[in-house]
């Protein structure tokens, strides 16, 4: 890498880190002055210490892994269904009309509102937790896939028509690649929602997971553990999204310069 580019990246990272650093410093300073009650808001140093302890005992990792497995299972189901149904509805105007009322009725229902009925139907095991996550990740993938498919440039479809391409070539070589950037946006939003809804899912009589850890710590009045959990959710979410972004730019190299 050229020195100039390196410096540019360095100064960009510096700028991004500046605000969090200032906020945490201020927070630590106020705690040091005794202006923040440790039972409500422990100092950043205390939280870091607790986080480190939880990491050393392996408790934090255990809860994180369990939550991650739930999220991936739920996402796989939700995003998978969203992709398949989105493709079908994106391709067929008639199917869209037939399902329009239903989807518009279901879409505004918040994921959390499904929790009680899911408990009734599926009990309090993994099934209902994963289903909550699946519902959350379904919508963005579903809606973005429909939009991506529908926005395929008619000029490209005309090229395929002139060359008398069969339907499956049209789908795999033209429609799908053209919709892929939009589908990926759906994946990223869907994954974000899936991860964010893990706490809600773990409201359902969980005995493990990062959401459970937070809720349990609140009950036993350990605000530092609560905040370690919150920070872990934020950092893991950031890490997942960064990974997805990397995957996206690797898969969609062609898209980087398209206006």
């Amino acid at each position: 890498m050229e020195p100039r580019v390196k410096f540019k990246n360095f100064s960009r990272a510096l700028r991004a880190l500046l605000l969090p650093f200032l906020l945490i410093s201020l927070w630590q300073w106020l705690s040091y002055l005794g202006l923040l009650r440790p039972t409500l808001l422990p100092s950043p140093l205390t939280i870091t210490q607790t986080g480190w302890d939880l990491l050393k005992t392996g408790e934090l990792e255990k809860h994180l892994v369990i939550s991650l497995i739930r999220v991936f299972q739920g996402f796989l189901i939700g995003a998978g269904l969203g992709l398949i149904l989105g493709l079908a509805l994106g391709l067929s105007e008639k199917l869209r009309q037939a399902t329009q009322l239903l989807t518009e009725f279901l879409r505004p229902i918040p994921t959390i509102a499904w929790v009680p009925i899911l408990i009734l139907w599926m009990g309090i095991d993994e099934g209902s937790k994963i289903t909550v996550i699946a519902i959350g990740s379904f919508w963005p993938v579903f809606l973005n896939t429909i939009q991506g498919v529908r926005q395929t440039d008619p000029h490209y479809l005309e090229v395929a028509r002139v060359l008398e391409k069969p339907r499956w070539v049209l789908l795999t070589r033209v429609v799908l690649p053209s919709a892929l950037p939009s589908i990926f946006t759906g994946f990223r939003i869907g994954m974000g929602i899936a991860w964010a809804s893990v706490v809600g899912a773990e409201l359902i009589a969980a005995s493990s997971g990062i959401g459970f850890m937070i809720l349990y710590a609140r009950e036993v009045s350990q605000p530092d553990v609560v905040l370690v959990g919150v920070a872990a959710i934020g950092l893991t979410g950031l890490a997942i999204d960064t990974l997805l972004q990397k995957l996206e730019s690797a898969l969609l190299k062609w898209n980087s310069h398209v206006p």
């Binding site: 090229v159 690649p177 053209s178 062609w254």
Partner: peptide
């Protein structure tokens, strides 16, 4: 052949 080349940007 069209005026706007219509090449697929992903290929």
């Amino acid at each position: 052949v069209f005026q706007d080349h219509r090449l697929f940007p992903w290929l």
